[in-house]
Design a protein around this nucleic acid. Structure first.
Lengths: 215, 215
DNA sequence: ACCTGAACACCGTTCAAGT
DNA sequence: ACCTGAACACCGTTCAAGT
């Protein structure tokens, strides 16, 4: 008989839980079912404990989300930058930002809503800053290039990842403006089409890179 | 004695409330105290009624938010586009997108989180589409230009409006990567500075416009 | 140190009831 | 048609208590 707890239920029992297990479970819930599914009670239930146990190990909901985001950031930190020329490597590092967000839409959305959007992508931002330096962009120019690229990628992600529910386009009262004015309807309709964004991303990114990194 | 209700409290009394008054009140709460302050109970309390009355007039929270966003969209619809050349007017219409969002950060953030980010800016998107047409950009080219510009503006807004809390930058474990690698710290630090974005917005916007509208 | 049980103060929503 | 009161099922969080 090894040194196991003498009782298996009630206060005082040991369930062998640590902060890492809690954060892993929280991250899994968010990735699979979205941020709204992450409640303290649901998280505790999945772990087989009470909500108060979660509070003891990592803290309240905000703390759980913070830890979850930081773990995800470390997970995507190892993404490789490809390309031969310095310019191509800058583009590759920028694309990594775009692709990692598309690969984990729920975590990305949660990080964005909780104001930690830069925290998740921190490792990838660093990687991009490194490639900019290799491309000869330094000082204030590097700062501007980094910010412009990050903003551009973030903008495409916002429209690309937004919930594609049918309840958008709100009232028909707004549509009246369009049909009245003789604007080509397909131009405006494309604002809702995420497929276009996948095609548009690359050339727009290149336009911004061209503006801020010489070559 | 005019035809007033015979009783002033309890079920059956008339308070002279309509859907417009509810939406106005909801919009005021959001603009002044943020979206989190908009609860059904708070809204009802400000109107001097019960929560169920709000449900009767406009519906649940989602319906209130939808109506609130649509009203704001109509409010900003009248923004003027300035500029002599067609290209300058395209830039002006794009700037309107940026400035109206900065003027109403709470409503913008709520619209974005509730997946109605395109609904709020719908009138301004139409205005931009009109200027693109005047600039000779039509068909698929107009669609691409519109999407690219909207994405660019949205990206700058996302980083500009994100809650500038001190709890960002999460763990110090991430910072270790930076100091180890000899990256210029000021380059990365600038990611948190919103002032830089105000300066960067215009030239980056011009780079995107240059790419998609000739002239 | 680790975990439970009960409780508190909120929230959105519904339903029967009033005039 | 318009409005109330009470209730339901949730939520995050706290606190005393157990081993």
């Amino acid at each position: 008989m090894i040194a196991t707890p003498t009782h298996t239920e009630g206060p005082g029992r040991r369930v062998g839980l640590d902060a890492d297990a809690v954060v892993d479970c929280a991250l899994a819930i968010v990735e699979q079912e979205g941020a709204d599914a992450l409640t303290m009670r649901r998280l505790a239930a999945d772990l087989g404990v009470t909500t108060t146990t979660v509070y003891w190990h990592v803290g309240g909901r905000e703390a759980v989300i913070g830890a979850l985001i930081e773990r995800h950031a470390q997970r995507i930190a190892g993404t490789e930058v490809e390309g031969d020329s310095a310019r191509e490597r800058v583009l590759s590092a920028s694309r990594n930002l775009w692709e990692s967000a598309l690969a984990h839409p729920n975590v990305t959305g949660l990080a964005h809503r909780s104001g930690a959007s830069s925290a998740v992508n921190f490792p990838l931002h660093i990687a991009l800053a490194r490639e900019l330096e290799s491309a000869g962009v330094r000082g204030p120019a590097a700062r501007d290039a980094l910010n412009a690229i990050v903003c551009c990628v973030a903008g495409f992600l916002v429209l690309r990842l937004r919930s594609t529910g049918p309840r958008d386009l709100s009232g028909e009262s707004l549509w009246a403006t369009v049909t009245d004015d003789g604007i080509d309807p397909t131009t405006v309709l494309a604002l809702v089409d995420p497929v276009d964004l996948d095609r548009l991303f690359e050339p727009t990114l290149r336009a911004v890179v061209d503006r801020y990194v010489p070559g």
